[in-house]
Structure formats: C-alpha cells, structure tokens
C-alpha cells in the first residue's frame, strides 16, 4: 500500500510544486502590491491618525471583514467569474491565483494594520511636529518602524496561502495540495499522500524559518 513509484510521482510532484509556486508567487505579489496599501489605508484613516476618516475606515473595514468571513471555498466559487474575465480561463493555477490573491490581500491588510498600530505614536508625532508631509511620515517613520512586523505578517500570509492553495486545487488549480487530495486521498495512494504532506510541511517550515530570520535580522540592527 505504501509503494511509491518514483517515476510516476516525481514528474507529477515537480509539476505540482511549480503550480504551487506560481499560485503563491502571484498571490503574494498582489498581497504586497494591494494588501500593504490597503493596510496603510485602514490604519491611517483610524481616529487620531494622519488621514482620519471614519466613514472610509468603516467601509474598508466592513469590506475586508466580509471577504474574510467567507469560507475560502465559497470565495473561490464567487470569484470564478472574475477570474474568467481577468485570466480568460476558470481552471489552472493562474485562474486560481485570482481568488487566492483576494484572500491574501484582505488577510495581509489586517496584519499590516496591526503592525502599524504597534508603532510608537510618539515617534509619529515627533515627525509631524517637524512639519513632515504625510508621505514623509509614512516613508521615514511608519514603514521602517513597522518593518519587522510587516515581514512577520507576510510570513504568516504566505503560510496561510499554502493551505488555501490546496483548496484551490480542488477546483482545478493544481499544485501540491491538489496532488495530495487527488492521488493520495481519492485514489487511496497513501504513499503519495504522505510524500506530498511531507513536502508541504517542509515548505511551511522553510517559509517560517526564512521569515523569522529576516525579521530577527532587521530587529538586530537597531
């Protein structure tokens, strides 16, 4: 039962790894490009912050909460039409990246907001008192001060993403999670499942390890 045929497994695993990498890469880049600014917007529009704007803050917050309260599988299906428009297809890793990106953007935005709110308010005030523009306060104070937290949040996002991407596999996204479910679970090839799970464990460990090191390194230079 635990027979593993490497000549069958290896090409499939290679393809699955590539697909997982592709989905994760696209989603993480969009999380960074859109989730980071969204997190800043959430933080800066809060009461007492630079761009204090309660209606906007409530609106963005509610929107993020709405997306985050959907189980990922449901989000995946809801976003399928959008994925079709954006990528021209509703199957494959590129298409799956759309829903993964949406999930990552809102997830990371909240983590960014938390990191920013932990920045010492006094330091921001000191910058404001020098007559710095909002942009300069963000660039010279908020961003560098929150940087280790932003890196840690990004690590957490990447790891959750690996979990989500397995679900994306169910609807034809492919990837390592898909391999584990289809070969290991549906076809009762426990060996394949164990190998893929082991690969997933290694990926998660590696991401956490790299993220922790990066954050620790940044903090050490203070």
């Amino acid at each position: 039962m635990l027979d593993i045929d490497p000549s069958v497994l290896l090409p499939d695993l290679g393809k699955a790894l590539w697909e997982t990498g592709l989905m994760s890469g696209i989603s993480l880049v969009t999380a960074l490009l859109l989730g980071l600014p969204l997190g800043f917007l959430l933080h800066l529009t809060r009461r007492g912050q630079l761009l204090q704007n309660r209606p906007l803050n409530l609106l963005v917050g509610a929107l993020i909460n709405f997306v985050r309260s959907l189980p990922y599988v449901i989000l995946l299906i809801l976003v399928l039409p959008l994925a079709g428009i954006l990528t021209g297809t509703t199957t494959g890793p590129i298409s799956a990246s759309v829903s993964l990106s949406v999930a990552c953007i809102v997830f990371y935005a909240r983590l960014v907001e938390v990191s920013l709110s932990e920045v010492d308010r006094g330091v921001v005030e000191a910058a404001i008192s020098t007559g710095a523009s909002h942009w300069l306060v963000v660039r010279e104070v908020l961003l560098p001060e929150a940087f280790p937290g932003l890196v840690r949040g990004f690590t957490v996002t990447a790891i959750s993403l690996i979990g989500y991407s397995a679900m994306a596999g169910v609807v034809g996204g492919g990837g390592v999670g898909f391999l584990a479910i289809n070969y290991g679970y549906y076809r009762y090839e426990t060996g394949v499942m164990l190998v893929t799970v082991a690969v997933l464990v290694l990926i998660v460990q590696a991401i956490q390890g790299i993220g922790d090191r990066a954050a620790a390194r940044i903090e050490r230079f203070r």
Binding site: G122, V123, A126, A127, T130, G131, E140, P144
Partner: peptide, 22 residues
C-alpha cells in the same frame, strides 16, 4: 519629548535629518 520619540529603526543621522528632509 519626555520619551525622546526617536525612530528606533533609523540611525541618529536619519533621525536628526528628518526635519531637514521635511
């Protein structure tokens, strides 16, 4: 300020330079 309010991630140089950059 009482608690100095320096940006801990930046060097002394960058902290002092902030108002000049502003």
């Amino acid at each position: 300020f009482q608690h100095f309010n320096l940006a801990s991630s930046r060097t002394v140089h960058d902290n002092v330079a902030l108002p000049l950059r502003a």
